[in-house]
Design a protein around this nucleic acid. Sequence first.
DNA 1: AATGAATGAGCGTTCATTCAT
DNA 2: TATGAATGAACGCTCATTCAT
Lengths: 205, 205, 205, 205
Amino acid sequence: MSRKPNTEARRAEIIRALQSVMATHGYEKATIQAIAKEAGLAPGLLHYHFKSKQEILVSLVTSLADYGQRRFEQIAGKAESPMDLLNAYLEARVGLGDGAAAEIVAAWVMIGAEAVRQAEVREVYQRAIATELELLSELLANCLRERQRVTTGSRDLAAALLAMMEGAYQLASATSGIMPVGYAAQSALRHAMLSIDAAPLATAS
Amino acid sequence: MSRKPNTEARRAEIIRALQSVMATHGYEKATIQAIAKEAGLAPGLLHYHFKSKQEILVSLVTSLADYGQRRFEQIAGKAESPMDLLNAYLEARVGLGDGAAAEIVAAWVMIGAEAVRQAEVREVYQRAIATELELLSELLANCLRERQRVTTGSRDLAAALLAMMEGAYQLASATSGIMPVGYAAQSALRHAMLSIDAAPLATAS
Amino acid sequence: MSRKPNTEARRAEIIRALQSVMATHGYEKATIQAIAKEAGLAPGLLHYHFKSKQEILVSLVTSLADYGQRRFEQIAGKAESPMDLLNAYLEARVGLGDGAAAEIVAAWVMIGAEAVRQAEVREVYQRAIATELELLSELLANCLRERQRVTTGSRDLAAALLAMMEGAYQLASATSGIMPVGYAAQSALRHAMLSIDAAPLATAS
Amino acid sequence: MSRKPNTEARRAEIIRALQSVMATHGYEKATIQAIAKEAGLAPGLLHYHFKSKQEILVSLVTSLADYGQRRFEQIAGKAESPMDLLNAYLEARVGLGDGAAAEIVAAWVMIGAEAVRQAEVREVYQRAIATELELLSELLANCLRERQRVTTGSRDLAAALLAMMEGAYQLASATSGIMPVGYAAQSALRHAMLSIDAAPLATAS
DNA sequence: AATGAATGAGCGTTCATTCAT
DNA sequence: TATGAATGAACGCTCATTCAT
């Protein structure tokens, strides 16, 4: 007899709507009214499901981080070698082709800017970045190990690749023609391979 | 009899104040009141010297682009070889150490986000990025030529390096410890050198 | 469950408040704050029900035009002869006696001035005037026909009478004693009757 | 040795500039900056020659009233009969053909609206209207006397004609095609003549 | 759960007026 | 006289948030 709570579904709709509006209008101009309209909901409902506008943003950040994780795991399922896994990761991050991806990428750029100025957003953003860094670092280390190289430089290399991907997001969103997102995957992979090959051989201890 | 115009000086002060406030609060929260306070001016005066808040932002973008240009030329003056020049460029872009640099870097990240959503900002941002790309591309081509390599990949390599630097700006501003800006210069240089060495030799035709 | 919309009622209140404030302070000085206070509403609410201040003004113009129309129809209901109808019209337009009328008249004068400088207001103002002109023209033609006169001059006469009424509004609002509004009805009627009598007889064809 | 004061010339320029700007933008939007630009003067200079913006407006009203007076006297110079004089008056008031006239007419409409809400403007506006009324009344009385009619109705008739002219200004400024200013002169003259002819004969006492 | 009206602080911008030069 | 920078109050408008229904 009790009503079935649909809070989780509603929250997801709202988060999704914020992502969509943020992609083109930024966070400040993503008004509650605009998000509600995008989601097809009454404005008042948003504050029923979320305490504040910032809470929607924070939820979006974790939501996007989770989405990236799932996407990688999905693509990685088919991979067998460490190199395949690395490739799968880069593909999951920057090898996005369709329109929905452009929205996600633009939204992520906006999130990055908000992370600079909002401590609460920064916290969850940082956590997401740190997780990425760790994952990528591990993937690179595995590649290095496979080729009998020392793994000391894997974290620095991961940071460089991460920066390249984030920068590609930015350039892809704010310019046209100069740097398509998809192109970044190749660049990153090439950089990774060059660096792996250039790494010193691990001596048997 | 008549009063001397001081518009140029005032405009510079205001632009500088916007940069400072944007670095920590973003563009939307960089209110006219806040900028005026930072500049030590009356709020109304800002609209005497600028038509709109957006005009201040656009001026800041070109101002920062010019600053980068001058900084490179200054550092490049001492350089002799193509490799030195490349190094000087990367140093000018990401080898910033002092506090003022962090402000510039953070402001540039905010500008990048605004470029996504404001056409007028995007235009001038794009122009700045294109100029950088061309310059860096030329520097890389010179390095390639010096080592008798084909220069076909120089533009793609330049784009990758540019993305890496922009991404480093973002990560440096929004996270701590993960990726210091200064570190990006080394990464970029290493990537450049690896790529140059890996480029095929130019055959005498 | 859901709340009932009350937009139409609120819009009417706001329009009414604008009319009241405009009558004594003009359009520019009829600030959103002042209108809100007059209506007993929070200032922000005005922009919830209207997109802009100008939209309130445009709504007021059509509202007043409609009111005039209704007022005429009401008075005209008792009329029987063409001359009675003409009299009813003039009465409805300028034979206003009570205090509410003075407010309407003054507001209309302000609207006239705004129509000169705001294209959007001019458009709806012009439409209202054109409707009046057509109606008055028809009423005059009927009077002329009843007396077997040619109706060729009816439109010019209508324009002259309309001008006289608008001018009476202006003089009644801006001066005291020189031209009471109510007096204009008599003048206009006299002018109409003289003109009708002076019109040439329609010859049987 | 002493500098030749040019205050009067400057004041005239400023008044003229206000008239020009008011005609299209109204009084509130006729900013000091805009008036100064129209006059080709520095903004600060306006408050050197006038105490306030309102003082410029008041000066404009008297200036326009004087201009009308001079214009009538000029045209009236050639007139011989009372009827010629009446005709000359109406011609001077509404028989304006060129472009400068449209500006004056529109400015006068704006002044009329300001007179409703500003006591100080109303005062001088009222004085101008009263002068007009007296003059027109006298002209009509002369026409009536010439035809041996009683002059009792001359003032009421004058008021009606004045209203018609003011209304014609309004309609000519805010609408197009419905009522050209120039047309009002004929209407008014016809109305005057009909009324004069209809006035009862003065009996020899 | 859901609606949509209501609130009021704060935004960018305008502008009459003042004033140092 | 003349200039143009400077001031600050007030404007129309936006918007996150609250709340009665």
